[in-house]
Design a protein around this nucleic acid. Structure first.
Lengths: 192, 192
DNA sequence: GACTTATTAGGACATTTGTCCTATTTCTTC
DNA sequence: GAAGAAATAGGACAAATGTCCTAATAAGTC
């Protein structure tokens, strides 16, 4: 069972948008990678913005799946939050080359004043809500949401700096800092 | 004394590159804002990359001037670092709309695999070196450089999140967090 | 096997891109 | 004021862009 052309287009466009940026990626680029003719796109999508929309939809679905998987992998919220943090380590090569897929897309779409910016931010929102849920479980109460935003912000900063300097040691040292922060949050019940 | 055309081009291009991105800004856009004809560019610059180079050179010079001004405005390194931090407040409107000028440029050029990426990162380097100098004065020793990188990273994260959510309250709360962090750094001599 | 639908290739299309060329205007210097 | 240099406008240029159209092929259905 081979993937449908439509799915293939979305997959390849996703990668190209991430690695080269949305604006800088052309139909010709996607066509070359997918191996179809340029005119054939419009049987599957009615515009380039439509492809972006499908890419974001795919990212939302995949993010949901990832968060669900993290949710099922243990009953300790602190451990689940570590799964999020360690994304920085797991994806370090790509992050050093292209930054965070979500953060850089949001930044680019903000500058383009693109209609899809809100949906791109929604991906960030999935992480925020999920993290807030974990902090709530840890007894953070009303501080759960700010803590989630702070952690998200922290990882965005690490991604920007890591891609600017292509510095793997920096990622590791910041991840250690985040883990330390998490283990010593004064509002929460301490690590058992 | 009116600014030269060359200077005007660089100024307007700087703004457009920041607010709309480098790739998405065309010669026609710059020409329209400056009020000159498209063909006239090549009397002043030999390519679009040349304009980007001039824009980065200008940003480097202006950053140097700003850091020098901060340096002269008091003898307390902690106070000087606060000048850096409060940039987030002073420029919050633009940051919420377009992110950090330096961080977003570095991110975009990384994706474009552009030759000027290194020079864009050099702007970040000015801040890093200056901040490291302040931390050194505070007695941070070998920790000065990592602390500078951490602070830079923190502010980059705030800029990304602020532009994604256009959330002014978030900027204020994170700035408060940074100030608190600065006041309680364990390695350094405490606030007098 | 005939018929319909889905999928594809290939190219046309107007527009925009960065770049370059050539006149013409403006400024400077004697 | 004349001569030379600097600056500008306007358009030409090929290449690339997103979009659309049409004809051909493939797949699926009766």
């Amino acid at each position: 069972m081979t993937a449908s052309t439509r799915t293939l287009i979305v997959e390849k466009a996703d990668t190209l948008f991430y690695e080269g940026g949305f604006e800088a990626t052309s139909f010709a680029d996607i066509a070359a990678v997918v191996g179809i003719s340029r005119g054939n796109f419009y049987h599957h999508f009615k515009s380039k913005d439509d492809i972006l929309d499908a890419v974001i939809t795919r990212r939302i679905a995949r993010t949901r799946d990832m968060l669900d998987a993290w949710q099922d992998q243990g009953d300790d919220p602190r451990q689940r939050i570590l799964s999020f943090i360690r994304m920085l380590i797991a994806n370090r090569a790509k992050i050093m080359a292209f930054g965070c897929p979500v953060g850089t897309l949001c930044s680019e779409l903000a500058k383009l004043d693109h209609a899809a910016q809100g949906r791109a931010v929604d991906i960030l929102g999935l992480f925020r809500d999920w993290l807030a849920g974990q902090f709530r479980e840890l007894g953070a109460g009303a501080r759960a949401e700010p803590l989630a935003l702070h952690l998200l912000s922290w990882s965005q900063g690490v991604a920007v700096m890591a891609s600017a300097y292509r510095d793997e040691a920096f990622i590791h040292s910041e991840v250690a800092g985040i883990e330390n922060w998490l283990a010593n949050l004064p509002e929460l019940s301490p690590v058992p």
